[in-house]
Nucleic acid binder design. Structure first.
Lengths: 190, 190
DNA sequence: AGCTAAAAGTGACCTAAATCACTTTTCAAG
DNA sequence: CTTGAAAAGTGATTTAGGTCACTTTTAGCT
């Protein structure tokens, strides 16, 4: 477990510096969790008690529409944060599903603990501020890609941006992430 | 100007509490700017020196594709923040345009000043952290709406969510925001 | 190795929305 | 009040991508 916590510390210290005391205080606010492939981290209608930092593994966050079709909001792997941020923030029942595409391990942070360490250790507030800002920028780019690009060029773009991801994820899920049918995606590329 | 700064202080204090000393320090890091309708706040290729908090007015943030078509990333009005966050964060030339749909006034915050007040006054770090998190959640919902909803239901959704905005903005810009052609939008609703 | 199920590919057909061309309406500026 | 430009509406046509149905390939699992 020490080695895993060290990874998390390194993740924080890529953005902000921490003293050992600060780190000891911070790490005591995380819980460990481990799930097998196909198990759920978050489910629609269930409480969303945590934000999760992924130690290892791969998950998909998605919603299911009236027709039962799955729409992928996010893939998240090692070193990523994932949650149903909306439900988590407002402490409401989950609005999306998050499940494991591979066996995965997480450090879990509750809302109460997050606010506690943010107001106790300013560096943590700055860490999440900067992280959140990066996330915002990424989502803006995804929106622009949905507005401006054809399905095919969104696929090419993703192939360039996250080649590793594509190898770990079935193409039908990539299709769903891109907002395109599996059949159409299969006719691209070549 | 005092009254305008008071509005900004209220905007901060909706999220975090500030002492008068803290506020005086914070406010000294903002600049005032005023633009007429049709003037640019940010242009592609130009430096993006600031993030802007809108005192009054309305702007659109958009990119232009190879065919000269405009794609609207965001509308922003009173009490909103706007910038080319990506270019601003990395201090690179602008990647989008932002221009005024109405005469507008702004408080401008440079990257250097933002980081200064964030690391000097922890409440500010928490303010931006929480704001940024809200922004992230909004963008996630917009992505989900682009993935799961038809153009028509996105329009209805927007009509409900921001009825005020629709009255201030030509429908062809709403169409561009929704990722639909102006002609198609015109055939909805009725 | 053999078997099942999921994933991927492919053809035929369909449809939502884009595009193009033109008309009508609205609005701001002299 | 008039006028020119921008915005909005509308019909005809095209097209990107969806859907359906089926086959082939790949990957887990006893």
């Amino acid at each position: 477990m020490e080695d895993k916590l060290l990874l998390l510390r390194q993740h924080f210290e890529e953005i902000v510096s921490l003293t050992d005391d600060e780190w000891n205080f911070i790490q005591s606010h995380f819980e460990f969790k481990s799930l097998k492939k196909h198990q759920f981290l978050i489910q629609v209608g269930q409480p969303v008690d945590f934000e999760y930092w992924i130690i290892k593994g791969l998950v998909k966050a998605y919603s299911i529409d009236e027709k039962g079709k799955e729409h992928i909001l996010q893939f998240a792997m090692e070193d990523y944060w994932v949650s149903d941020h909306c439900a988590f923030q407002h402490q409401e029942p989950g609005t999306i599903f998050v499940d494991c595409l591979e066996d995965s391990e997480f450090f879990c942070l509750s809302l109460e603990n997050r606010e506690k360490i943010c107001f106790e250790v300013p560096a943590v507030a700055n860490f999440f501020r900067i992280k959140s800002n990066h996330g915002y920028i990424n989502l803006q780019q995804r929106i622009l890609s949905l507005l401006t690009m054809t399905a095919e060029s969104r696929y090419e773009y993703l192939l360039n941006k996250l080649p590793k991801l594509i190898q770990r994820v079935p193409k039908k899920l990539i299709a769903s992430y891109l907002g395109v049918s599996r059949e159409t995606l299969s006719r691209f590329n070549s």
